[in-house]
Amino acid sequence: MRYGGQGRRDPATTAVADVSLDVAPGEVLALLGPSGCGKSSLLRAVAGLEPVASGTVAFVGHDLAGVPVHRRGFGLMFQEGQLFPHRDVAGNVAYGLAGRPRAERDARVRELLDVVGLAGYEHRPVATLSGGERQRVALARSLAPRPRLLLLDEPLSALDRGLRERLAQDLRDALRATGTTAVFVTHDHDEAFTVADRVAVMDAGRLLQVAPPEELWRAPASRRVAQFLGYQAFVPLDALSAAQRAAVTRDGAGTTSGVVAVGPRGLRVVGRGATPAPRTGPGTGRRTAPARGAARWWAACSGAARRR
């Protein structure tokens, strides 16, 4: 699967430019980027829902230009599910299975509802489902025709945090279980890291870095990528002492140019009680706020506001 150097042009804007991505069979690739960075446009272009101004979308070597959406064999899952309101759960899941024998269709619907954890929901009207259940049905529906490639457009963004984390895990299991090749668009890096084998970071219509989650986290290619991943403080290496440099770089103190990014939990106040006192550490304490089981402390150091 390859889409090389493609751009989508509106009369005045280019949503995506110079993006070249390959997806291996069975791989789950996450497209990660802030809202409006062009990742959804890219996804829609791959699905054939948006015209591509230049560049190609190709699948196993075949250019897909001119192939209409319904013949591409690509599944697409939307943020709000887009279930058919006039069909029940089974009717929705079976939509992509038209033309197959009834018994086979029923078996496939049962199998997929089982995969997404909704066994026995066949005859429920979709209006009675909760947000999470709808997304599960939408996933089952898009997996049912065994798409050659499944495109997921922020499928979990409309859900609350706890549900999102649980569903991200389930989503990964479902994609694994069915061996589906998938491109997953999200603005949430935790979600991308949970679901994907590789993560492509996009910003302003350009591709910044493509790497497996651990590598991306360990060595962001640029400050922009690091910022987007949640790194907040950036310290030039030459501002550190040799001992400090040795502690933070891989080759000891050899590297002197560059920037050290400090992650959300990179610096911690140890001891002295759970909450840092306003005057702990270098710099002036500004405010503290509880965050996920720990206290977060904002401080001003060298004139810049930094979060610890």
């Binding site: 209409p68 319904h70 599944g75 887009q82």
Partner: peptide, 27 residues
Amino acid sequence: IDPRLREAAATLGAAPGRVFRTVDAPI
């Protein structure tokens, strides 16, 4: 009718005629 509903139908392999028959018409 949300245009994405039609798009969802199309990505599930429905030709435009079937999209109209199974999405627009029943609604």
